[in-house]
Design a binder for these strands. Sequence first.
DNA 1: AGGATTTCCGCAAAGGTTTGCTGTGGAAAT
DNA 2: ATTTCCACAGCAAACCTTTGCGGAAATCCT
Lengths: 328, 328
Amino acid sequence: MTNTTLKKISEILGISVSTVSRALKHHPDISVKTREKVIELARTLDYEPNANAVQLRTKNSKLLGLMVPTISNYFYETFIAAVEEDSRKNGYAVMILQSGNDPVIESENLKLFRQNRVSGVFVCLSSNTKDLSSFEKMFDLEIPVVFFDNVPQESGVHKVCLADEKSAHLAAETILQHPYQSILAIFGNPALSITKKREAALKNAFQAHLHISLMIEHANSSEEAKLVCHEMLNKHLPDIIFCMSDEVLIGVLKTIQEKGLRYPDNIALLTISNGTIPRLFHPQITYIETSGEKLGKAAFAHMLNCIQTKTQPTELLVDAVLFNGGSL
Amino acid sequence: MTNTTLKKISEILGISVSTVSRALKHHPDISVKTREKVIELARTLDYEPNANAVQLRTKNSKLLGLMVPTISNYFYETFIAAVEEDSRKNGYAVMILQSGNDPVIESENLKLFRQNRVSGVFVCLSSNTKDLSSFEKMFDLEIPVVFFDNVPQESGVHKVCLADEKSAHLAAETILQHPYQSILAIFGNPALSITKKREAALKNAFQAHLHISLMIEHANSSEEAKLVCHEMLNKHLPDIIFCMSDEVLIGVLKTIQEKGLRYPDNIALLTISNGTIPRLFHPQITYIETSGEKLGKAAFAHMLNCIQTKTQPTELLVDAVLFNGGSL
DNA sequence: AGGATTTCCGCAAAGGTTTGCTGTGGAAAT
DNA sequence: ATTTCCACAGCAAACCTTTGCGGAAATCCT
């Protein structure tokens, strides 16, 4: 079977293509009688507009691009799910690509987005991306780019972020409400914007509390976090371990379990997470919630704004809240 | 800035559009001199073909559709990641939609796929889909549909599945190698093909061992699994709990932890999983591996086959292997 | 009734590519 | 000096929609 087109409908009805097109969109020029005939036939023939032809003619597609380092990630998947859902509800489809943290692939993916004439793209930068040069063409072509999670430092671009500073602050506050004296804080890849922000905020919060010992370490993966944690715990057992992310938390938990330590009895735990992982355990890990879902919804809303009106580049923040598990 | 088109290039060079088009594809009709001039200019102008126009003309797009109940799922995400990666390497982009297990949305999504003229779609059926009627039009239009994971019972369609029977068999074998006398097996939504297959296979494997007590329960979510497990454990403590999936495992683990039980000392655990969740814990949970990645790769390879040649509908199986954690 | 509006619809171009066919000039063959 | 042939490039149609403009018929007004 071949697809139904305006032409086919017009031939059957013995009217012109343009009349059919207008009838289908309730254009006032078309009489009710004709319109109903057309709509009726279109339904029985199950007419479905050719999105390619539409976009070719109108130059605006109902396609959005979304790029993350990898789809398979506790945080991104909820973000993606949220964006997809809201997109669908607004008639948009989402084209999803992974950069694998490779700037070259990232650049190629942008090209793919352009070739498919997306109306806008959501991007979580690869951790190895040094500058925004591969995005220049997007800006030139005025394709809205909404960065999320790991965003560029530059101002003048659209960013939707978790309240990184605030969440680190909240973490610090939470810690300070307890009599912890020594803290081991493990962060992720130091090249990421979220890492920098969270680390700076945490350090800053503890500057007024010099009697508290704050050790800071970095790890690029769960495996590294596990190793780093092992090393650190061999030297000294802190009162609490703060984890910047799920990745880190997973490594830390393994070490703790392997060492036969129990939380919160032997050591306290606090992490930043969307909650999926912390709630798998018992007791549940106390965490500062950074919801991928909320971020996704915010990102989509902002995108819609950008597409419909020329929105000034802004940095949007999604709030962080504390979830009390039982690890403190 | 506006996009570079063949026309723009042809005007600058003072040649015709068709010559430019042919030059860019190394058509033998075009002289080397002309070709090089064209390619050179195309590069400096950063020409990027309009995918919409190409597909409109050629009727074949480099777009694939992928639909899952929800992206945010331990198994699907690895499947999606694998499909996306292989697609990218083969010049395809992937459009991803979620059905939310709603047959109506599922049907609308198929329509979206058609409108965007995808060359093929991967579908994991929603658990509430009763028949394949909404897929008829895909078949009519000869758009390849590759079902995966939760697939229809009908034959005559393309299916890529985990070796459900085999994995359940493997589970049974593994259990039988130990002196376990009472087994609690918790399965997922009984409407799913994977549930049916796994359950039947497990039952079947134990028919020759009537001295072993096998209790079977169902749960549609982690929450339900937790409740069911609680109930069952209150009545009687089995030697081992078999979980059909991560969803179930998560619920079971919570119950076990809440009850202060330790595995493998008090109770043994065996699950079917892609490994992400089982390896988060310590000791790691022993599982039958059903790799979303392998499945994704198989699905893509099969899709490519379908697109390039008229492949006969087949059921492809991806093998299952045992991963020894420490929960037996 | 005759002109002025309205109502309703079609023509044709445009958007960017691809491709079968035609056309040109020059070199080689006769 | 014709004819033949080949290498090279352009014409034009097609894919499907959208939309500005123009035109015919029907309706209105005085």
